[in-house]
C-alpha cells in the first residue's frame, strides 16, 4: 500500500474514531415525564438537547398532540422561556394556541414567545436559530400537513443544533405521516376518552393515548397518559375511576332484583 493511501486510511480511521467518541461522550440529560412505564422505556425520561417528533394523524387530533407537546415542553423547560414557531395558515386549520388554555394546563404564558413564520423555510431557519440560543428551555415547531422539506437533512440540522446548545426541539406534525428522520423519539398521539365518572365529578383533564413509535435508545410502547395541570407532570390513568363515595345500602338492594329479572 502506498504512503498516500495509508495516509488517507489513517485520516478516515481518525475521523470515525472522533465521531464515535462524540456520540459516546454525548450523554443526554433526561427529564422524567411522570408516567412510570414510559419513563422506564425511555431509560429515565425524555432526553433534552435532542429532537423529538410528535405526530397527530389527522387535523382533529391536533389539540391532543398540542397538549402532549405542551406537556413535554413544560417538563423539559424548567421555567426557562419557550419559543413556539408555526406557519401562518395553521391558525385557520386548527385554531391558534390559546394563552388561557396554556395557563389552564399549568404552563405560564409569560414564558412563551410565538413566531408566525410566513413559510416552512423561514420556520425551519428560525427553529435552527432558536436552538442555538442556550437561554431557551425548548423550541416547538408546528408543521402542518405533508411536506418534502422536512427531510433527513433538515432534521439532522435541528438535531445538531439541539445537541450543541442542549435546548430541546419538539416538532409537532399535524396531518402527516412519519418519515425517516434523526429524531430521538417519535410519538403518535391521539385523544383518549375521559374515564366514566359520576355526573358530579370533574371530567375533561387531558387524557392522551400516546404511542412511542420510535426510540433510538430503547423499546417502544403505547400508554394512556394523563396530564396533571396542578403537578405539571404526566401520570398513569387513575386505576379506579369509580366514585369514591359509597353508594347507599338500600340502593344496592333495589338494583339487585332488577338485574336478575333482566
Amino acid at each position: 500500500m502506498t504512503g498516500a493511501r495509508m495516509d488517507t486510511l489513517a485520516r478516515l480511521r481518525g475521523r470515525i474514531a472522533r465521531l464515535e467518541a462524540a456520540n459516546g461522550a454525548h450523554d443526554l440529560r433526561r427529564v422524567a415525564l411522570g408516567h412510570d412505564e414510559a419513563d422506564a422505556v425511555l431509560q429515565g425520561g425524555l432526553a433534552t438537547g435532542a429532537l423529538h417528533e410528535v405526530f397527530a394523524e389527522a387535523g382533529r387530533q391536533a389539540a391532543a398532540a398540542t397538549g402532549f407537546v405542551c406537556g413535554l415542553a413544560a417538563r423539559v423547560a424548567a421555567r426557562r422561556p419557550l419559543i413556539w414557531i408555526r406557519q401562518d395558515f395553521a391558525e385557520r386549520e386548527a385554531g391558534a394556541l390559546s394563552m388561557s388554555g396554556l395557563a389552564e394546563l399549568g404552563l405560564d404564558p409569560c414564558r412563551l414567545v410565538v413566531v408566525r413564520a410566513p413559510d416552512l423555510d423561514h420556520a425551519l431557519r428560525t427553529a435552527a436559530d432558536a436552538l442555538a440560543c442556550d437561554a431557551l428551555g425548548g423550541v416547538m415547531l408546528e408543521v402542518w400537513g405533508e411536506t418534502q422539506k422536512l427531510d433527513l437533512v433538515a432534521s439532522r440540522k435541528l438535531t445538531l443544533a439541539a445537541q450543541e446548545s442542549g435546548v430541546t426541539a419538539l416538532l409537532l406534525r399535524v396531518a402527516a405521516t412519519p418519515e425517516p428522520s434523526t429524531a430521538e423519539t417519535r410519538w403518535m398521539v391521539r385523544t383518549a376518552p375521559s374515564p366514566v365518572v359520576a355526573p358530579w365529578m370533574a371530567w375533561g383533564a387531558p387524557r392522551l393515548d400516546a404511542e412511542l413509535i420510535r426510540n433510538r435508545h430503547g423499546q417502544t410502547g403505547r400508554w394512556i397518559m394523563e396530564w396533571m395541570p396542578d403537578a405539571c407532570r404526566f401520570s398513569e390513568p387513575a386505576a379506579d375511576p369509580q366514585p369514591v363515595a359509597a353508594a347507599p345500602a338500600h340502593r344496592a338492594h333495589q338494583a339487585e332484583p332488577r338485574r336478575r329479572s333482566a
Binding site: 389539540a63 394556541l97 383533564a205
Partner: peptide, 12 residues
C-alpha cells in the same frame, strides 16, 4: 383540581 376550562386551541 379543576380540569382545563379553556381550550388549548382557539379559533380566531
Amino acid at each position: 383540581g379543576e380540569p382545563p376550562l379553556r381550550p388549548l386551541r382557539l379559533f380566531a
